[in-house]
Amino acid sequence: MKKFARHAIFYVGLVAVWALLAKLKIWPPYVFPTPWGVLEALVAGFKDHSFWIAIAISMKRMLLGYALSVFLGMILGLGVASNKFLEETMGGLLVSLQSLPSICWLPLAVLWFGLTEKAILFVVVMGSLLSVTIAMETGRHQIPKIYKMAGRNLGARRFRLFWHVLLPASLPYIVSGLKQGWAFAWRSLISGEMIFVSLGLGQLLMMGRDLNDMSLVIAVMILIIAIGYIVDGLVFKTIERHLQQKWGLSPAT
C-alpha cells in the first residue's frame, strides 16, 4: 500500500504541475493541452467508438504478427542453435540485423506487398522475430550443462530430451525473449500505422496531428503506453513471477 501511495502522490503531483503550466497559458492549447482537455478527448474517443475500433484493429494486427514471429522465431532459433556452422554465421548476422529499426523494413514491405495488411504484418514480424530468435538461441546455450547431462544420464534422448529438459531449462530465456519481442512488435506496429495510413492507433495519432488536436494526440499516446504497460505488467510479469517463485528460475542476467 505504501508503494501505491508513493505512486499516487507522484502522479497527482505530475498532473498538478501540468495543470498549472496549462493554466498559466504560456503556450497556446494546440501546443500544450490541458489535462481536462485530454481527459475529454479520451472520453469522447471511447464514446464514439473510434478508440475501441482503433484498439481492436491494432490488437488484431499485433496478435497476428506476434504469433507469426514467435512461431518463426522459435523454429529459426532452434535451427540456428542446433548447428555450429549456422550458429557462428547466422547468429552473427541476426545480432547485427537487430540493430536495424524495424520500420526500415517498411519500404521493402510496401514494394513487396503493396499498401496492404501484409506489409504492416511484415513490419511487425520483423520487429519481434529477431528478439525471439536470439532468445531461443541464447537460451539453448545459456542453460547449465548439468541439466542436459542429467537428462541424458536418466535416459532422455533426442525429442524427449528437448521437450522434457532443454525446453523447460531455457524457459526463463524464452520468456524474456518473448517479452522483448512483444515490446518491439508493439513499437513497430505503431510506427508502421503512422506512416502507412490504414486505421489503428498509429493512424489515430496522425489524425490528431492533421486536425491540430493536441488533446487527441496526447490521449492516443496515453492509450498506447497503457496497452503496452498492461500487457507487460499483467501477462509477462505474471509469467516471470511464476517462474521465479514456483521454480526458483531466473535468467542469469
Binding site: 542429467a150 537428462g151 532422455a156 524427449r160 522434457h164 531449462a169
Partner: peptide
Amino acid sequence: LIFQELGLFPWLTVAQNVEFGMKM
C-alpha cells in the same frame, strides 16, 4: 550417475524428479 552437482530439475517437483528416469 548421481552428479556431484546433483542436476535436479528445478521445474519439476520432488516427486516428478524421482519419476523422471522411469518416465523416460
